[in-house]
Design a protein around this nucleic acid. Structure first.
Lengths: 344, 344
DNA sequence: TAATTTAACTATAACGTTGTAGCTAACAAA
DNA sequence: TTTGTTAGCTACAACGTTATAGTTAAATTA
């Protein structure tokens, strides 16, 4: 085991001062060429690398971004992380991941750890529980400490930070309109509970499309899937509710706010021998792996996680390097796109 | 914006020395109770938090683990990361993620960055390209620097580090045997190219099972899916090859080394109106989301990513806190389990 | 020759901590 | 009274770096 050599050690080996070594390695012309060459050769031979922690302490910059997300094992979020990691690495930043697991408490803890730790800025998507509680003090405090924050996907409007969102409402409206245009008037909506902002927006879009076409919304056709810790329960709730509705109401299309819901719905339909898309057509948010490999494959609304990740990282890094004003905040809106597959 | 207060500032505000402040906050009895209380109250009121970077520099410990993985958008790896993150956080460690994208060059770069950066140890799964090249100098160098490394899933044997693997060969053998017991003798294997160690082991297990049952392996029934950057190409290669074999050979079962392959195979079978599991039954490695939502759902071999992640993190942290000897290396083997669903 | 410039280096402080050693005044023991 | 002990504090060095401000000797200029 060879410990990394330091400037001090190089200095004492070569009988020069630490300053001389530091300057030589930075090719300062304050140092004579001969000395410089000798030092650089020695440093290279001993595989000198500056100690980044010492640099961080000195520069008050860690070159690291913290990312707080509700889940990792989730197609959309993993795409976003991947994209954040990619853009950040390309720009000389590391990425620390923290998972809130949709829990408020854990999110606050994550925030605390990151905020007095090794990061220059934070990119996050807010946990469901936090949205429900409407308690954002931890985010505010972090911002107050001068740590820039970028929110993506699940955001709240009155925070002094950059945001990257998707035109959820419009996309839901358009998807619903697509179904209506296909002569489906009895559209069932599979959505999340009210406090989830994106679910809400998508519900709004759905309702607006109905209204535009003079269809009276039927509250029985809106299933708000209960959020249980442990997704098995969540899914069985969805399946029970859906089956109930299918037995009592006419349904000729389903709009899901995510692909897990849609995938589960597909299972229920299959079990009940209802053909997709002939009898019921399906469109769902989240263009993930389920949609592609299910059968029939699902038409989806892609939220372009890659773009979201990249934009978020760019907004943050631009702040960090002082490219954009630290007291001005942007909200970028990414347009979803409908990917047509077999289910519609 | 309120910058974080430092010991120095507290000291000068209260007209005491920095040492006094530091000791008070650590409840040292060197300091009188009155002073201690006053200082603690002041620190609390000003929301004092020790600067972790200064601590890292002093203690030569960052309390951060680096994770290098080939991909994030991948069910197995995302489960492992999730589990590493969970265990690490519970034990006071942060997690930095770096993605090699299956590229040797990127992996080496990742390693470099991490190794002279903010981490105490590394958990990694080796990129395919690195396995192909058989060049592990970067890993060796990191180990030589005294940075403990834990390899998981894709490992190589002659490195001085802990390893966590799965009993791939045995699991493949058992799965194949299950198929044979079901009277399927013409089992097609969908595997990866030779240099991927796990694919290889799984192939070996498959061959051993055939041998045990006196079935002569048919090389036409082994499809080695070509690894192309950009998985679309990869999949079309698989689909073409598979269709070719289905047209020329009798096949009554398929064993896939991962669920993407199996999912794609399922699509091909469906397209060719071959019923699963009646005509062809399928078992696949990787118990992911595709398997659950495909139809029929796929029987899979779970590699227990959660356990892998946790074990890896535990092995590393035990080394870091000196609980285990730094020059002794363990290899933990996790037993896969077969999860029976509709496809077999 | 004396003053000034310049080349080539070194010393020091600082980033925020902590642990060790050192200091001072008050009190107890001899 | 002198010495010793203790409580309660402070000074200093160190972790590894860099930027600023010296320092020295040689070379240049007046």
């Amino acid at each position: 085991m060879i410990r990394r050599i330091t400037l001090k050690e190089i200095a004492s080996e070569l009988n020069v001062s630490i300053s001389t070594v530091s300057k030589s390695l930075k090719d300062s012309h304050e140092i004579g060429e001969e000395t410089r060459k000798k030092i650089k050769a020695f440093a290279k031979a001993h595989n000198y690398r500056p100690n980044n922690i010492a640099l961080s302490l000195k520069n008050r910059k860690t070159k690291t971004i913290g990312v707080i997300i509700p889940e990792i094992v989730h197609h959309f979020f993993s795409i976003v992380i991947n994209s954040i990691e990619k853009f950040s690495t390309e720009n000389g930043y590391n990425v620390i991941i923290a998972v809130s697991n949709e829990s408020f408490e854990k999110e606050v803890l994550n925030m605390e750890t990151l905020a007095n730790g090794h990061i220059d800025g934070i990119i996050m998507s807010i946990a469901k529980e936090t949205l429900k509680k409407q308690d954002f003090h931890h985010i505010k405090e972090t911002i107050d400490l001068g740590i820039p924050v970028v929110l993506f996907d699940r955001v709240i409007s009155d925070l002094k930070c950059d945001k990257v969102i998707v035109n959820d409402k419009q996309a839901a409206k358009e998807a619903t309109q697509t179904l209506i245009d296909d002569n489906r008037k009895n559209i069932l909506l599979l959505t999340s509970e009210d406090y989830v902002s994106v679910g809400n927006l998508r519900t709004e879009g759905y309702l607006e499309a109905l209204k535009d076409n003079d269809i009276i919304p039927d509250s029985d056709l809106i299933i708000k899937v209960k959020d249980k810790k442990g997704s098995e329960l969540e899914m069985s709730h969805l399946e029970d509710e859906l089956e109930k509705v299918l037995n009592t109401k006419k349904v000729d299309a389903i709009l899901g706010v995510n692909e897990i819901y849609a995938g589960s719905a597909l299972k229920v339909l299959k079990k009940n021998k209802i053909s997709v898309p002939k009898e019921i057509s399906i469109i769902s948010f989240t263009d993930g792996v389920i949609s592609r490999y299910s059968s029939p494959s699902l038409s989806t609304i892609s939220q372009h996680g890659e773009i979201m990740g990249e934009r978020s990282a760019k907004l943050l890094i631009d702040k960090l390097i002082g490219k954009t004003e630290s007291n001005q905040y942007k909200t970028e809106i990414i347009n979803c796109s409908l990917i047509k597959r077999e289910s519609s």
